[in-house]
């Protein structure tokens, strides 16, 4: 009698765990497609006839699948961040990604790519395209292919408003400064502020948390990201010092995908010309900084040279 009870209990448990497992898998499927988002950008004309690519090429395969996987930041306003009320990812990078997807005639699927994993994502094919505030630099050019720069950010330092000690890069000695693992600022800070203590974390939202609770005294990264933090915290923080670096952002593509790179460049040129660039810039950046949209018109090589000038 007793042993049958146990057997029944065991069978019930096994059935339950199986059900949970199946449910968990199904759920996963659901969220990945859900992340693709239904709305398109607030753009002008309806999608023109998308250029068709041959099967077997990367772009052809993407068209066949009907979906392009784009790695973006989920926590970096105003470039890529999750809108807490709608659950959709939004931002300038997202708009650029939607433009590429639209030009291909496919649906965009946005996945989270943090500074540290975005290059492996391309190498492993987890993402087809990376649009995550990624600076074009010499080291990365050897690892992945870049589109022409679509934005040029400037490196700055962010501190709390009541901080009177840190006024620029030369006042960081002995201070703790936060930036993201795998970002270009690790090298920038090491060369320009060798006596600063670095705190390297996974995401800029973690940096912000650490600044707010006084674990670090400053954050150093691109001005647009820092501006996003100022907006997010309701004016508790301020930018200090001069511009440290210039950071030309490029879209990342797997090395060797020349056709893909050309296509993205063509799309960006169109976006810059037909007003979509300006609309997106004004919505995400200009509204807060008062700046005018200035789409960069330099090549990848020129961008690499620009970055080399940083810190000199």
């Amino acid at each position: 009698m007793r042993s049958t009870h146990w057997r029944m209990l065991f069978a019930a448990l096994a059935a339950m765990s199986l059900a949970l497992f199946v449910a968990a898998c199904g759920d996963d499927e659901e969220t990945t497609t859900g992340a693709s988002g239904s709305q398109t950008t607030a753009t002008t004309e309806p999608a023109e006839e998308a250029k068709k690519f041959e099967a077997g090429t990367t772009l052809g395969d993407i068209q066949k699948k009907g979906e392009i996987t784009i790695g973006v930041k989920f926590d970096v306003p105003p470039f890529g961040f999750k809108n807490t009320s709608s659950g959709e990812v939004e931002g300038f990078d997202i708009d650029m990604g939607k433009a590429v997807a639209e030009a291909l005639g496919v649906k965009p699927k946005f996945i989270e790519a943090i500074s540290d994993n975005r290059i492996p994502f391309l190498e492993k094919g987890t993402a087809d395209l990376i649009l995550s505030t990624m600076t074009i630099n010499e080291e990365r050019v050897g690892q992945i292919a870049f589109s022409d720069p679509y934005f040029i950010a400037k490196g700055r330092i962010l501190v709390k408003k009541d901080n009177a000690d840190v006024t620029g890069i030369d006042t960081l000695s002995g201070k703790t400064v936060c930036t993201a693992l795998g970002s270009t600022y690790e090298a920038t800070l090491k060369s320009q502020a060798p006596d600063a203590k670095l705190k390297l974390v996974d995401s800029y939202s973690e940096c912000l948390e650490l600044l707010q609770n006084d674990t670090v005294e400053a954050i150093s990264t691109d001005d647009v990201i820092l501006t996003g933090m100022i907006i997010q915290t309701g004016d508790e923080l301020k930018l200090v010092g001069d511009q440290l670096t210039q950071e030309p952002y490029g879209a990342g593509i797997k090395l060797g995908e020349t056709e893909f790179v050309d296509f993205v460049n063509e799309t960006f040129t169109k976006v810059k010309e037909d007003g979509r660039y300006k609309a997106s810039f004004d919505k995400w950046v200009g509204k807060f900084t008062g700046e005018e949209a200035e789409p960069p018109s330099i090549s990848v090589d020129e961008a690499v040279e620009l970055v080399k000038q940083n810190g000199k």
């Binding site: 492996p120 936060c178 795998g182 974390v201």
Partner: peptide, 22 residues
């Protein structure tokens, strides 16, 4: 990794983020 403290695993993360030799 949780508390942004440079212990053995976190140092590994930092090194890996530079060389990608995971």
């Amino acid at each position: 990794v949780a508390l942004a403290l440079d212990d053995l695993l976190k140092v590994g993360r930092t090194i890996q983020s530079r060389n990608f030799q995971t």
